[in-house]
């Protein structure tokens, strides 16, 4: 963990100094050399104090706003209240890749909260300089669609955790996240690819890290729309699945749709001040076009789903026209 190997890298909207090596993240361009950076360092992480609040069994908050997250046998993490220091204490014998997996997941969400950003549980893909955030429950098919769009020439912006910039002026923007799509073996093989040579997310899991076929977005991308992925309810035995439906949500429905897309919704809801959270939700609901896409989850249905997503992007220009009628 020598500081001589420390690099300045880009992680979503932030610069980071990686005293704990974060080799997946791209190096920061020279012009960011002097910008404020989050320090990710290896350091002891104390047990939660008696006056710390338990948010979940794994997440605690200190009176000064410091956030603590622990995955037993992997690592404990501490995010300073100002969001500029992340302390990492790997468990004895833990794999560095396993530690980073949780750093890029729950810890990223804690960092977002510390910086006043609402993390979305979404894969975000961009084409022609505009981005679609594809949200859905775990297992709903976000990463599969991200991989499919990537093969169709779209650029990856973020997989799994999407951070939307909430500046009051200008369009909503998503900054490029970790440059990989996490995909289960059956989906990798479903695309006709092999898992040979792909890194696993964890040694014991059949989940692999796929590099985006057409690379990452070069920088922040304006967000055109949020698509909520759902599966149709089951019908009677033997009936064919219903056709794909795509519905634009408005008003309260759009607001509730955005709320359903928040990453670790309960945790973020408990940590983020209500006013800030509602403002972020409202901003997203009014400035991005929110759609519900109900479709069967199968590789055979993919072409139709990709066409629907192309359609969403085509009818939703960003910026002032972001609320344009489809």
């Amino acid at each position: 963990m020598g500081s001589q190997n420390t690099a300045r890298r880009v992680w979503g909207p932030w610069s980071v100094i990686d005293e704990v090596p974060l080799p997946e993240l791209p190096l920061a361009p020279l012009e960011q050399a002097g910008a404020p950076a989050i320090l990710v360092r290896e350091a002891a992480v104390p047990a939660p104090g008696a006056d710390w609040q338990q948010i979940t069994p794994l997440v605690h908050r200190a009176p000064d706003g410091t956030l603590r997250f622990e995955v037993p046998d992997i690592a404990a993490f501490l995010v300073s209240g100002d969001g500029w220091t992340v302390s990492v204490a790997p468990a004895s014998g833990a794999e560095a890749g396993d530690v980073r997996l949780f750093l890029y997941g729950t810890v990223q969400a804690l960092l977002a909260v510390a910086h006043g950003l609402l993390p979305l549980h979404a894969a975000t893909m961009a084409k022609d300089g505009r981005a679609l955030a594809i949200s859905g429950a775990s297992g709903a098919g976000k990463s599969t669609l991200a991989a499919a769009l990537s093969h169709a020439g779209w650029h990856l912006v973020a997989d799994d955790v999407t951070l939307v910039g909430a500046s009051p002026a200008g369009p909503l923007q998503v900054s490029p996240g970790v440059p990989r799509v996490k995909l289960w073996r059956d989906m990798v093989e479903g695309f006709g690819l092999t898992t040979d040579g792909l890194a696993r997310t964890r040694m014991e899991l059949e989940k692999f890290q796929l590099l985006p076929a057409h690379g990452m977005a070069a920088g922040p991308v304006p967000l055109a729309a949020l698509v909520l992925l759902e599966a149709p309810p089951p019908g009677p035995l033997g009936t064919p699945p219903p056709p794909l439906t795509l519905t634009r949500l408005r008003g309260q429905e759009a607001f509730l749709g955005v709320e359903s897309a928040v990453y670790r919704r309960r945790l973020v809801g408990a940590l983020m001040p209500a006013k800030q959270r509602l403002a972020a939700l409202g901003g997203l609901a009014s400035r991005a076009a929110v759609h519900r896409l109900v479709r069967v989850q199968s590789l055979a249905a993919l072409p139709e789903v990709l066409a629907a997503l192309e359609g969403v992007l085509a009818c939703n220009p960003v910026g002032a026209a972001g609320a344009a009628q489809p």
Partner: peptide, 18 residues
């Protein structure tokens, strides 16, 4: 889904035993 929400961590990133 309830595990993920109640614990604040993605169960799909955990091993079955974890």
């Amino acid at each position: 889904l309830r595990f993920d929400e109640l614990m604040g961590v993605e169960s799909a990133d955990l091993t079955p035993m974890e």
